[in-house]
């Protein structure tokens, strides 16, 4: 293993860990203002929106691939299936899709 790469990995580890850890220590047991609490409660759903779109369009060169995968996941989830079934359903539909096209 090269010394330079190891230093790089440790540096990456430190700058990745600090933003993950800091809020748990900084805001522990503190009552934040109601508005800020509301914003933080909104964050998960906003994050999911931003994580899905537009990245899902670019998982393969064919833009339809992501769109069909997303649509399949949406339908299975809307029918009330649990998350693992949603994942398996979406993978199955795309396997069929790439088999036929």
């Amino acid at each position: 293993m090269s010394r330079e790469i190891i230093i790089m990995i440790i540096g990456m580890a430190v700058v990745t860990y600090i933003p993950r850890m800091l809020p748990f220590v900084m805001f522990r047991g503190k009552e934040l203002p109601p508005f800020l609490q509301g914003v933080l409660k909104n964050v998960p759903f906003a994050t999911l929106g931003a994580l899905i779109f537009p990245a899902i369009l670019f998982i393969q060169e064919d833009i339809w691939y992501g769109l069909i995968g997303a649509a399949a996941a949406f339908i299975v989830a809307f029918l009330g299936a649990n998350v693992i079934l949603v994942v398996i359903g979406s993978i199955s539909v795309l396997t069929l899709y790439s088999y036929f096209f």
Binding site: L51, I52, I59, Q60, Y65, A73, F78, G80, V87
Partner: peptide, 24 residues
């Protein structure tokens, strides 16, 4: 190869699966 490609959707499908129940 086909399975590798179709599995690239897995995490996005999971995100959709987490989001939709709350959307409803």
């Amino acid at each position: 190869q086909t399975l590798q490609e179709s599995m690239s959707v897995a995490l996005y499908a999971m995100f959709v699966g987490l989001l939709v129940p709350s959307m409803k």
